[in-house]
Amino acid sequence: MALHRGRGFASINYPIGMNLGGDPSQALVHSNPGGKFMVALSSIDLGQGMKSVTRQIAAETLGVPVEDVYVDTADSDTGPHCMGSFASRGTHRVGNAVIQAALEARSVMLEAAAEELEVDPADLVTDGKGNIHVKGAPSKSITTAEACGAAQFKQGRTVSGRGIFLIPLSEVDPETGEMTPVSCFAHAALIVDVDVDDETGEIDVVQMNSAYELGRALNPRLVEQQLIGGAWMGMSHAAWETTEPYYPERSHGPLDFNEYLMPGPGDIAPHDIAILERPAPDGPFGGKGPGEMCANPVLPAMVNAVFNAVGVRIDELPITPEKILRGIRANGGARPPARRN
């Protein structure tokens, strides 16, 4: 019995969102008379941080503190239309819609403030702390709450805005077959080190190292957390999870968490992540979206690492101990490929 160390590499070029008939998302923003803002969305926060990121985007665009923004999601009866939280599209599509809606609401808020201060709205700026003042003259000032209250009770304005971001349907050119299904790509590279036991066929993931290019990381801690969690999911897809272990034969399919395998807290590996920021021209504040790509490169990298360790090329996931042992037997033993130095 021996443990064989192997290293696998994979890189990914990941499209943000999809375009099957056009890909829109909407946002509606309004203030209450106390100057707090509501962002209404139908987009869903699955735990990836949609509410936090859209809240930041709205606050930044409106020019108000993030504490003054509330994001209401996930009631498609009352919220404006959204295609959904999938295809890593949330930050990019919904974020852009929120910017448009927040810009419109901001312009009304500044008009209301201008009327109260008897100045031109074009001369007004926000300080991000709840104040609006004349550029270069901070003493000529009104709070965002006072401006929104005046709009409501004195001026008869709604401080509100509508936003939509649409990637229109891209037709296929009949001559060339060319089309533009996506406008924005994110990129990553990941290296995984594994130990493969040639007696039991078990894999121990030892270390992961990755670099992700995600446009601007709008909330760096959330991004890092999403990448760590996503890599676990990728690891789990690669070597643990399946509903059909002997597909198309239905036998031995798991029926509950006793049988459906996933790596537990004792199976995880240290993961060092480098986040590279190259703001996307059409992204909200340059953001793209980590989404699904945080899991994707782990799968091919682990398959490559197993090949590098014992010379067994797995072509059907998950990489079970049984497949590794059958592969080792077929090769007449663990036969790692010759290493290039």
Binding site: Q225, I228, A231, M262, G264, P265, G266, I268
Partner: peptide, 17 residues
């Protein structure tokens, strides 16, 4: 710590945090 939470499944975080 790992042993104490080994009866708890998390699907999102990867356990590390």
């Amino acid at each position: 710590v790992v042993e104490a939470i080994s009866g708890n499944i998390c699907r999102c975080t990867g356990y590390e945090p």
